[in-house]
Design a protein around this nucleic acid. Structure first.
Lengths: 148, 148
DNA sequence: TTAAGTTAAATTGTGCACAATAGAATTGCA
DNA sequence: TGCAATTCTATTGTGCACAATTTAACTTAA
C-alpha cells in the first residue's frame, strides 16, 4: 500500500473524543431545566441516586462508584448537607471515614426525581438499540482508559 | 401486558448519560499527560485544532463550531494569548467582533501535536468500528439535544 | 436621524473536575 | 512498643461550563 496524499489528523470532524465531550456537555445542559425543579445539579442528582439505592455510603465508596475523588465530592456533599438532603458523620470505628446518609427530605426527593429519566429519554429521541449501543461504547472506553 | 414488579429507573447502572459523562471525564484525564507536553488543556487543544485548520476565526464562529459561548471562550482565549499562541484583535469593520488568529509559535505547535491522536487511539484500545459507532451515537445525541 | 432593537464579547457568580498537597487516624512491621 | 507507611478526607489552586447580565457597537424603522 502506498501512502497517498493525506489530510491532517488534527481536524475537529475526525475527533471521536470531541464528539464525546460535546455530547456530554449537551447532556448536562439538557438535564439542567429538569433538575432545576429539584434544586440539584447533574452531579448532585447522580450522588442522590446512589444514596437512594444504597442509603448510606462513605466518601471513598461513593467516589469509586462514580469515578470521582474527595476534591470534587467533599464540597458537593457539603452543599447537599446545607440543603438538608444528607447527613455527614464521622465513623466511630474509624475517625478518618466520613459516612454519608440520607435525611428524610433527601429520601423524599426521590419521588420528584422519578419522572426525570423519561423526560431525558424523550429529549434524546433515540431508539433503545441506539442508546444501548452508545452506553456500551462509553462503558468499554471507560474500562479501557481506567485499566492503564 | 401486565406490569410486573419493577425496580426503580433511578439506579446508576441504568443511566446511559452517566456512562457518557464518566467516559468523557476519563477521556479528559487520559489526554492530560499527553497535552501537558504541549502545555495545553483539552479545550485549549480543541481551540488550537480549529485554528490550525482555519487559521483565523472570530469568537462567535469558534463558539458555534465547538458548542461553547464567550463565557467559556473569552478567558480561555486570553490564556492562549498570554502563552503567545494566538493574537486577539478587534475587527476594523465591526468593533464588536474579536478576531482570533495564530501566532508563529501557535502555528508551530501543530507539529508537536501530530502524535497526540495516535497516542489516544492506543489508550482507547477499541476497534475502528467500535470507535466510529461511538462517534455516530454521540453525534446523533448531540444533534437531537440541540434541535429542541 | 434618532430611538428601539439586535448583536458580539466580556463579566460575574456558581459548581464542578482534577492535580497536588496536607493532616489526621489507622495499620503493619521491626 | 514505636515508628514508618498507608489510608481517608479535606484543602488549595487552576481551568473549565454555563446562566445571567452588562457594555458597547451596529442595524432598523418610524
Amino acid at each position: 500500500m502506498t501512502k497517498t496524499k493525506q489530510s491532517s489528523n488534527l481536524t475537529l470532524d475526525k475527533q471521536i473524543c470531541f464528539s464525546l465531550y460535546s455530547a456530554s456537555n449537551a447532556m448536562g445542559r439538557a438535564y439542567r431545566p429538569l433538575l432545576k425543579e429539584l434544586d440539584l445539579t447533574y452531579l448532585q442528582y447522580i450522588v442522590m441516586m446512589v444514596l437512594w439505592q444504597y442509603s448510606t455510603m462513605n466518601v471513598k465508596e461513593l467516589g469509586s462508584k462514580i469515578h470521582l475523588d474527595s476534591g470534587t465530592l467533599t464540597p458537593l456533599l457539603k452543599r447537599l448537607e446545607t440543603k438538608g438532603l444528607i447527613n455527614r458523620l464521622r465513623s466511630k470505628e474509624d475517625e478518618r471515614v466520613m459516612i454519608i446518609s440520607l435525611t428524610l427530605d433527601g429520601r423524599d426527593l426521590q419521588h420528584q426525581a422519578e419522572k426525570v429519566p423519561n423526560a431525558m429519554l424523550c429529549k434524546a429521541s433515540m431508539t433503545m438499540e441506539q442508546l444501548v449501543a452508545l452506553k456500551q461504547g462509553c462503558d468499554l472506553l471507560l474500562a479501557n482508559l481506567n485499566n492503564q
